[in-house]
Design a protein around this nucleic acid. Structure first.
Lengths: 197, 197
DNA sequence: CGAGGCCTTGACCGCGGTCAATGCCCGTGG
DNA sequence: CCACGGGCATTGACCGCGGTCAAGGCCTCG
């Protein structure tokens, strides 16, 4: 199995050497999903973290009216999961499915412990990634609390130009917390501004 | 220095034994702040995690119009900080100040490493707390994306009944992402509903 | 060529924001 | 002990952003 992104992740972000990587290599499990296929469905218990080797995933909740709220997209090198469901063995309230055909690496506690054993530094590196993730979530909350749809959209374009090109617009609207119609109007207003300047 | 909550935290959540606690005891630094005093100001670099021994803190951002967006309250046993600022040594975009007179324990990387050395299990426990934190943030984002002011308020009351009683209403409004006036109307509508039933 | 998914556009409406006035509580000082 | 002032909550009038509903256009794919 050829997993250049995952290998790079373990070596560069995880701090493993090439030899250490090959030591845990045999433990790696992968999973392929096609577009619209699910990796996690509401009500079931999430068993793994999913590292995206290539493709795009989405992580979303259904609210009381059955509307989707997209919490996160994940492209190459992102890790996605319902952490609460994993750690507390509870049924998940979330769904994960594929926006493109996607190849993922399935990480469980067993694998993480194995890597940490090979290189104890890994846990520390991993912690920094978690801290960074928390930081991004606070930034997102800050925008949701205080910024207009226009500002949130501009921030998204700047932060994730790659995702812009790979997911349909109505999903971006959902991620931003607005309707597809509203997002369409925001975009129209922006192109009009461009003409004026 | 008598720190019953922090001691309990290191022993119950951190997994230390009583003896191990006394081994790191001498390294503990605390900081007292009075109401309205700052622990972190926008533009300065955040040097510590703050564990709340007793009191209430708030963590907030200022948006472009100078309005406060409260990202987090912290009562007893909570840990607050700008993680990005700590890890990347960047000036912070956030503020932390005290809502009540508060006693905090200041945790830095040095202290955490010392605890981890005394009990290697600590880092793993800490990771679980981080995962749990991420989970809560996703829940909050989910509510901000899809729920009305009323639903968000009811959720807050249910989740943090203690905080309700200790912080002024306009701060709760800020946390929920609405104006104080709107929150007042939501509350009024709810008491009217109560009379009907 | 037809069907279905997605984006756009228009008309309408309601939730929540804004601004301003009033009420209430409480601490401070005359 | 009362008068005053400041901070917070409430209420009302008004408005605008963004939601809802419906129609139409534009793709792509069978």
């Amino acid at each position: 199995m050829n997993l250049p992104n995952f290998k790079k992740y373990l070596i560069e972000k995880g701090g493993l050497s090439e030899e250490e990587y090959y030591q845990v290599n045999s433990l790696i499990q992968t999973k392929k999903v096609q577009q619209n296929e699910f990796l996690l469905k509401e009500g079931s218990i999430c068993s793994h973290f999913f590292f995206v080797e290539h493709g795009v995933l989405r992580f979303y909740a259904l609210n009381d009216q059955g509307k989707e709220n997209i919490l996160q997209f994940a492209t190459e090198n992102w890790i996605l999961s319902d952490r609460g469901s994993i750690f507390y063995k509870e049924p998940s309230n979330y769904n994960i499915d594929a926006i493109e055909d996607t190849l993922t690496v399935m990480l469980d506690e067993h694998f993480i412990n194995a890597v940490a054993k090979v290189n104890p530094n890994f846990r520390k590196q991993n912690e920094i990634l978690l801290q960074n993730h928390i930081r991004h979530l606070y930034r997102r909350i800050s925008l949701l609390l205080g910024a207009s749809a226009k500002v949130r959209y501009l921030d998204f374009v700047k932060t994730y130009p790659d995702i812009m090109l790979r997911v349909p617009q109505w999903m971006i609207a959902s991620y931003l917390g607005v309707t597809p119609e509203s997002l369409s109007r925001v975009r129209k207003a922006l192109t009009n501004e461009d003409f004026k300047s």
